[in-house]
Simulated assay, not measured.
Amino acid sequence: MKDQYAAFLLGGAIGDALGAAVEFMPRAETLSRFGPEGITDYAPAYGTSHGEKLLSSLALWPLWRI
């Protein structure tokens, strides 16, 4: 069960980081900037190279305690 919980939180953080660069971007702009596949890799966002967000960091913090 612990592994499933960790995978759930990690998957959310990865999705959060991947989507950070396009979070408020219209679809047409996303496709124009990243191509027809959309964003497929980390892009700069929120002053970091990988779009780390506070909510992801806070959600993952309990993993270091398990």
Rank of each mutant, 00 (worst) to 15 (best):
F34G: 08
Q4G: 07
D3T: 09
R65C: 06
T30R: 12
L60R: 01
G47Q: 03
A45R: 01
T48H: 07
G12Y: 09
A28G: 04
I14P: 01
D16C: 03
G15Y: 02
M1G: 15
D3W: 05
A6T: 09
Y42N: 03
P44L: 02
L63T: 06
Y46L: 14
L10P: 00
I66N: 10
F24C: 11
G11V: 00
S49C: 12
L63V: 04
G12D: 11
D41I: 09
A45M: 05
G19L: 15
I14K: 01
A59S: 08
Y42D: 02
E52L: 15
P44H: 06
G47V: 04
A13N: 01
E29F: 03
A7D: 11
S57G: 15
P36D: 14
A59Y: 03
G35Q: 03
P62Q: 03
R33V: 14
A21I: 06
G11H: 02
A28V: 11
E29G: 02
I39T: 06
V22S: 15
M25C: 03
L31H: 01
D3E: 12
F24L: 12
E23C: 10
F24E: 13
G35E: 03
A13G: 00
A21H: 01
H50S: 08
D3G: 01
V22G: 08
Q4S: 11
G12C: 05
M1C: 04
G15A: 03
M1Y: 11
Y42R: 05
I39Q: 13
L55Y: 14
W61R: 15
Y46E: 12
S32E: 15
A6V: 11
D16G: 09
F8V: 00
R65L: 13
E37D: 15
E23G: 02
G35N: 02
L31D: 03
A59H: 00
A28M: 07
A43C: 09
E52H: 05
A6C: 07
G15H: 00
A17T: 01
